[in-house]
């Protein structure tokens, strides 16, 4: 079987690249959009087989529904990003975006507002990723879903891992003073991870 080896050192380099992009652009975009400062923390970058998705889900049980937006950036580098948060937090988030005190159920507009947030955050993230590196990418239409985290993960995993069956994944978490919380899972395959490392070398 063809293997796509990524060393520990390369995973650390990827973490540094993701950290830089999130800290310089994504946090700023999020804070501007929501009108309040956000803190963030970013996890270790891991490599796993697409059948090992449970390694990405330790914090959630199968009974918690998540609201999520998935989009993929394609071009010189292909990267998928899954934004997710518990459904109740998603409603808080959407209410704030729409200038409402509370959101009962997700409406078409509120789903759209979260999808657009994913679009904007990804735009800022990919701008940082490609800055001055002549890396051209275009963004797919974001998809919105409410489901368990495990269910949500299958699409990005198979979408990104279809060629290599391996995933490079890095999770970032954003928190605001008013307790808005959002998580961002960056996923790419090893081939694109190597391309990203080359671009940033």
């Amino acid at each position: 079987m063809q293997t796509y080896a990524i060393t520990e050192s390369e995973l650390e380099q990827l973490s540094e690249i993701f950290n830089k992009c999130v800290s310089t652009r994504t946090v700023e975009s999020l804070s501007t959009m929501l009108g309040e400062p956000f803190d963030y923390k970013i996890g270790k970058t891991k490599m796993l087989d697409i059948s090992e998705l449970d390694e990405l889900t330790p914090a959630f049980s199968d009974s918690v529904d998540m609201s999520a937006v998935y989009l993929k950036q394609t071009g010189d580098i292909n990267v998928g990003i899954l934004y997710y948060m518990p459904e109740k937090d998603g409603k808080k988030f959407a209410a704030k975006l729409l200038g409402l005190k509370k959101l009962g159920a997700f409406s078409k507009l509120s789903k759209s507002s979260l999808s657009e947030t994913g679009n904007i955050l990804s735009g800022s993230f990919f701008n940082a990723l490609a800055t001055e590196k002549h890396c051209k990418t275009t963004s797919d239409i974001p998809g919105f879903a409410i489901d368990t985290f495990r269910s949500l993960l299958e699409i990005p995993a198979t979408d990104i891992g279809i060629e290599t069956q391996s995933l490079i994944a890095c999770d970032a978490e954003f928190n605001s003073q008013s307790d808005l919380r959002l998580r961002m899972l960056i996923i790419l395959d090893p081939i694109n991870a190597k391309k990203l490392l080359d671009i940033h070398s």
Partner: peptide
């Protein structure tokens, strides 16, 4: 799982 406005079967 993911619903896309105007492009339902992208994934």
């Amino acid at each position: 799982i993911f619903q896309n406005e105007g492009k339902p079967n992208v994934f």
